[in-house]
Simulated assay, not measured.
Amino acid sequence: MSDFTPRHAIVTGSDSGIGAATALALADAGIDVAITYHSDKDGAEETAEAVRGRGARAIVAQFDATDFDSVPDAVNAGGGIGGTFLDLDLKTWRTDIALNLDGAFLALHTAARRMVQAGSGGRLIAVSSVHEHQPRVGSAPYVAAKHGLGGLIKTMALELGQYGITANAVAPGEIATPINDMSADDAERTHRPGIPLGRPGKPSEVADVIRFLASPSGSYVSGASWVVDGGMLQMGPQAGSHMESDAWRSAGEE
């Protein structure tokens, strides 16, 4: 198990954004990829073609992280609804928790059991969020779910290490993806005063970290949460896309 080399990966939500970039990054590493989508079948098929173009095999399947009776052996999927704490109702709360925590648990649990049965080790990687580490106003259920996912990953690392399975989270900050109404090209032309690197991230920059964790090079990394946010967390929980001034950059200068 110490010589584990990944040959197959399942990347949920890989019809666009971080998921699509991850599928391509893994294909570049010679890994065959199962691509799942919720509603954008065309996007998933486009990702599959790009994976095949890199010499790897690809299959496509529909996946709804909240359809618990048909959760396949996937890794993670998520999204957020939002709303201030006082305005939340139980339905909204449960929908967000179900998508970001319950669905993640079931997918990770299914994958872990298959890995243990196979007896050759494995990598479990959850795409979390910087809000696993810091809260954000107006996102109580999403933040609670991501905090929970982070704790789940750490516990999994403790329990699954004996089987040669690592468990880690990748915690992106603001990334230029369709869910943020941006394309990858927008990252370089969008200025963000509240991010030390001054811009949103590219999906490929998150995918590169995931590829490392999935590779033999990540064999001794487990129970960690890898923040990929251009330094945003160091600015405090309300920075990022919400800060409107660069004045902080010259603080202390005369």
Rank of each mutant, 00 (worst) to 15 (best):
P200A: 12
P193I: 07
A214E: 02
A207L: 09
D181W: 11
P196N: 10
I210F: 07
K202S: 03
P193Q: 12
R211P: 03
G198Y: 01
P216C: 13
V206S: 04
P193G: 10
K202T: 13
P203R: 05
P196E: 04
A184Y: 10
P193A: 11
G218L: 08
P203Q: 09
A207N: 05
S217W: 13
P216F: 14
R211E: 11
P178H: 11
V209F: 05
A214S: 13
G201I: 02
R199D: 00
D186Y: 05
G194I: 01
E205P: 04
P200N: 07
G201M: 03
P200G: 09
R211D: 04
T190V: 12
P193C: 12
P203K: 05
T190S: 11
P200L: 05
S215V: 12
P178W: 10
D185P: 01
I195P: 00
E205R: 06
P216K: 13
P203M: 10
D208S: 15
S183R: 14
H191M: 01
V209N: 01
L197G: 00
R199A: 03
G201C: 10
G201A: 09
P193D: 08
R189V: 14
I195L: 10
A187H: 01
K202Y: 07
V206A: 06
I210V: 15
E188I: 02
D208C: 04
S215L: 12
R211N: 13
V209S: 10
S183H: 11
R189A: 07
H191W: 11
T190F: 06
T190K: 06
A207S: 12
S183M: 12
P203Y: 08
R192P: 00
H191D: 09
A214V: 05
I210T: 03
E205A: 08
A214I: 03
P193M: 09
M182K: 13
R199Y: 02
S215K: 12
H191R: 15
D185V: 07
R192I: 01
V206C: 08
I210C: 07
G198N: 06
H191Y: 09
D186E: 12
P178S: 11
A214P: 02
D181F: 13
P193W: 04
V209I: 14
G198P: 02
G198I: 02
S204Y: 07
V209Q: 05
S217I: 02
A184T: 12
R199S: 02
V206P: 00
G218Q: 08
A187P: 01
A214W: 02
D181Q: 15
R189Q: 14
R192L: 15
N180R: 14
N180S: 13
L213S: 04
R192G: 00
I210E: 03
D208H: 13
H191C: 01
R189L: 04
P196I: 03
R211Y: 09
T190D: 06
A207K: 02
E188S: 14
G218H: 06
D185F: 06
P193R: 06
L197Y: 08
R199E: 00
A184P: 11
R192Y: 13
D186W: 04
P193Y: 05
S217R: 14
L213R: 02
E188Q: 13
P196C: 09
G198F: 03
I179K: 08
D208E: 15
G218I: 07
M182W: 06
D186K: 08
T190Y: 04
H191P: 00
D186C: 08
I195Y: 00
I210A: 04
